[in-house]
């Protein structure tokens, strides 16, 4: 089946099998390997990307479902050669260790800040509770998202 999707601003057309999982389409067909696979049961969230701005687990979607939709993966966070606030914050606050959950965490954080520019610690912990991390204990992920929210607010008010 032919599909056309927009990923990180670029349009892609491909002929795919209906059973092709969206995550495999992103990783294999588009070569965007920053989106990862960590489980089979929609539990770990490392495959999360933004679909029309909303975080979705791409291991639990078929590529054909994404036909006509617009997605942002971790590779699309950097704009015009500038790291996004959330990318800066994760580096600054040691928000990652092995890096496997990081792309998803940053995307979920981005969507959260978009919706709630001043999230509390509980808001953040709740928002990322569909995404697992085995390294950090979440402490610095929460800190990073808090910091990115602050930077984003400052950027918006200046």
């Amino acid at each position: 089946m032919n599909i056309t999707v927009t990923v990180n601003g670029a349009e892609h057309t491909a002929d795919v099998e209906p059973r092709l999982l969206l995550v495999d389409f992103i990783r294999t067909n588009l070569g965007l390997t920053g989106t990862h696979i960590g489980c089979d049961t929609t539990s770990c969230g490392v495959c999360t990307v933004l679909v029309d701005g909303t975080p979705m687990k791409t291991c639990t979607m078929f590529a054909v479902q994404a036909n006509g939709r617009s997605m942002v993966t971790v590779e699309g966070l950097k704009q015009n050669g500038e790291l996004s606030a959330i990318q800066d914050a994760f580096r600054e606050h040691h928000g990652l260790q092995c890096g496997f959950c990081t792309p998803a965490m940053m995307l979920v954080g981005t969507a959260l800040i978009e919706e709630n520019p001043d999230p509390t610690e509980d808001d953040i912990r709740w928002a990322i509770s569909g995404n697992l991390c085995r390294c950090t204990g979440y402490v610095n992920i929460v800190k990073s998202i808090e910091a990115a929210a602050e930077t984003t607010r400052e950027g918006a008010s200046s």
């Binding site: 965007l32 390997t33 971790v74 580096r91 600054e92 890096g99």
Partner: peptide, 21 residues
């Protein structure tokens, strides 16, 4: 010191086994 490895991970440019073709 801030981590040097983060530069690739935060851009989705980590290179895990399954990323290699």
């Amino acid at each position: 010191r801030k981590r040097v490895e983060d530069a690739r991970f935060i851009e989705g440019r980590g290179n895990y086994v399954d990323d290699i073709t």
